[in-house]
């Protein structure tokens, strides 16, 4: 079998999960990797469970839907139930302390991080998805930082460029903070 990495950004509709997944997918594609990005969402435009998934491979992706997650980002407690059965043993789990305060026990690497609080401190909770993206890139090492920065730049309207770049870098910092990692 070829290498296959699977990840999910889980939360609710309107949080920008699909955008973050697309940015990451673009960055990985630019680096020459094969990517399949899928999503599940509800008919409501905001709220309701939503997930944006990525399957990453060195060769063409046969089945493009996630079946065993290597990395999981949780931006709402709603996302725990549908995602937990897919989690691989030892998977990386990044969860927002405020929106997803409690996590099940299990065999995984747990990073309970103040993602939305960091976004609020930057001036807008709306960039929580980009803070999360920064933390995910920093902790998983799945994507070159230069490429993710290029992808964020390419996807961001000019008026939000500084905010998004600050959010991405704040995500790196939050992930690097020594208090971040808590053994499950």
């Amino acid at each position: 079998m070829n290498t296959r990495i699977e990840l999910r950004l889980g939360g609710t509709g309107g949080q920008g999960l699909i955008l973050s997944a697309k940015i990451l997918a673009d960055a990985l594609a630019a680096g020459g990797q094969r990517v399949a990005q899928s999503q599940t969402y509800e008919p409501t435009s905001r709220g309701g469970y939503c997930n944006a998934d990525l399957v990453i491979s060195d060769t063409e992706v046969d089945f493009p839907i996630t079946t065993a997650l290597d990395h999981l980002v949780l931006l709402d407690r709603l996302a725990i139930k549908p995602s937990w059965p897919l989690l691989k043993p030892g998977a990386l789990v990044i969860a927002d302390t405020r929106l997803c305060p409690e996590l099940p026990v299990g065999d995984y690497r747990r990073y309970h991080l103040p993602l939305s609080r960091t976004a609020l401190q930057l001036g807008s909770e709306r960039v929580t998805n980009i803070v999360a993206l920064g933390a995910l890139v920093a902790l998983s090492g799945i994507c070159d930082r230069k490429r993710i920065e290029q992808a964020v730049r390419a996807e961001t309207p000019r008026g939000f460029l500084d905010l998004n770049m600050d959010a991405l870098k704040a995500g790196y910092s939050v992930a690097a903070a020594p208090v971040a990692a808590v053994a499950s």
């Binding site: 594609a29 990517v35 399949a36 990005q37 999503q39 493009p64 839907i65």
Partner: peptide
């Protein structure tokens, strides 16, 4: 719907 809204390289 899966392949309609699926993004692939």
């Amino acid at each position: 719907q899966v392949i309609a809204q699926l993004s692939e390289t």
